[in-house]
């Protein structure tokens, strides 16, 4: 599940903006550095939890809940930022939070992001056989000592944390998490996490690097990364859908 479609990243964005709001209300400019990631994490988790709760096992309901939740959190983010913008002109613009800019990343934070990404990818790779089992059957998972609902919850928390760290720094970058595993799935013709995790990590890094290059000058002016990733995502979605209908 893409954290963008699940509403996770919109929740994280609101959390990060809420940290600005709190800092400016208290008149303490340094406060938000300490709490930004934590607040982003809390709201990312809340957004994912709401999506999963409303989606309750049904894939269509989950997608619709995710879209609704992400609009809700984006709307709250716009409200908070419109309020803040007058008092704090030095804040990153609204488009940063809603559509993602890689321009503001600094090297100290890069290390944190790299570590978080490496941890998530590494853990997913180590857990790939167990992730596969939970994808196949609750019953078989259970007799093999995995509690499927707890296992899914643990991943939801882990992914919300990683998403929060990313969004707090680069805003909401959409569709990479959705389209990359789909391309990998089509290229590899194999939906096992053992194949998808490394392939998606490599392909995701490549896609985002290329999208970032395009977004920062290839068009002659700078645009948010999400505009580029979304432009790539639509044909991929069409491809994925026709692929699913053919059923191979």
């Amino acid at each position: 599940m893409d954290p963008y479609i699940a509403g996770t990243s919109s929740g994280a964005a609101l959390g990060a903006v809420a940290a600005y709001l709190a800092a400016s209300a208290l008149g303490n400019a340094y406060l938000f550095f300490a709490y930004q990631a934590a607040l982003a994490f809390a709201l990312a988790l809340a957004a994912s939890a709401l999506t999963v709760t409303f989606g309750r096992g049904n894939i269509y309901a989950t997608v619709i809940a995710g879209v609704a939740i992400s609009y809700l959190f984006s709307a709250l983010t716009i409200l908070a930022l419109s309020y803040l913008a007058r008092a704090n002109p030095q804040l990153p613009p609204i488009t940063f939070w809603l559509f993602g800019y890689l321009t503001y990343v600094d090297y100290k934070y890069d290390a944190v992001l790299a570590a978080a990404a490496a941890a998530v990818v590494g853990l997913a790779y180590l857990e790939a056989r167990r992730i596969d089992l939970v994808a196949i059957s609750d019953e078989i998972s259970s007799v093999r000592g995995i509690r499927p609902s707890r296992y899914r919850l643990a991943w939801l928390i882990g992914i919300s944390l990683a998403t929060a760290l990313v969004v707090a720094k680069v805003g909401v970058i959409g569709f990479v998490g959705f389209m990359v595993p789909h391309i990998a799935r089509i290229l590899l013709k194999n939906g096992s996490a053992t194949a998808l995790v490394p392939a998606s990590a490599a392909l995701g890094a490549l896609t985002l690097t290329l999208s970032a290059a395009v977004s920062r000058g290839a068009l002659g002016f700078e645009v948010p990364v999400t505009a580029i990733t979304s432009l790539i995502a639509v044909p991929v979605m069409v491809l994925a859908l026709s692929h699913a209908r053919r059923g191979d």
């Binding site: 596969d132 089992l133 059957s137 093999r144 096992s192 053992t194």
Partner: peptide
């Protein structure tokens, strides 16, 4: 456990068998 219902995953049969280790 042989479940009556399961998810129709698009993995190789080998991956289904190896799922869980």
């Amino acid at each position: 456990y042989l479940p009556a219902e399961f998810f129709n995953v698009d993995m190789r049969v080998a991956d289904v068998l190896l799922a869980g280790g």
